[in-house]
Computed example of a mutant assay.
Amino acid sequence: MKKWSELSLEELNKTSSKLKGVLIGFIILGVLIALALIFLKAKPVLFIPVMVLPITWVPVYGTLKSVNDEIRLRNSPDVNQ
């Protein structure tokens, strides 16, 4: 995989869009799982994976943040001069 600085602005925007979609999908999936467990009146022990689930989103969020930082850096007026 290329470094963020080697990608074009268009590729960075596509990557950012994909990562946002993945993150939103994971969040929706987590909410649906939690609602299903509540609806099914599951035992409290089954909620442990749902509570740990947001920890798995941290790498995606970190990558999204670094991509957005690179986009912001390229769009800043100081770099374009």
Rank of each mutant, 00 (worst) to 15 (best):
S16I: 01
S16D: 09
S17K: 11
K18E: 14
L19F: 01
G21S: 04
G21N: 07
V22I: 12
V22W: 03
L23N: 00
L23R: 02
L23F: 02
G25N: 09
G25M: 02
F26V: 07
F26R: 06
I28F: 06
I28P: 01
L29F: 12
G30D: 06
G30V: 00
V31M: 05
V31A: 07
V31E: 05
L32W: 02
I33A: 15
I33M: 11
A34T: 14
L35H: 02
A36M: 13
A36D: 07
A36K: 08
L37K: 06
I38R: 08
F39G: 11
L40M: 14
L40G: 11
K43I: 09
P44K: 04
P44D: 06
V45L: 14
V45D: 12
V45K: 06
V45R: 06
V45A: 14
L46H: 12
L46E: 04
F47P: 00
I48F: 10
P49S: 03
P49E: 08
P49C: 06
V50Y: 03
M51Y: 12
V52E: 03
V52N: 03
V52Y: 08
V52W: 10
L53Y: 13
P54H: 10
T56V: 09
T56A: 13
T56G: 12
W57R: 03
W57Q: 09
V58W: 05
V58D: 01
P59K: 07
P59F: 05
Y61D: 07
Y61R: 05
Y61Q: 11
G62I: 07
G62L: 10
T63E: 11
T63I: 10
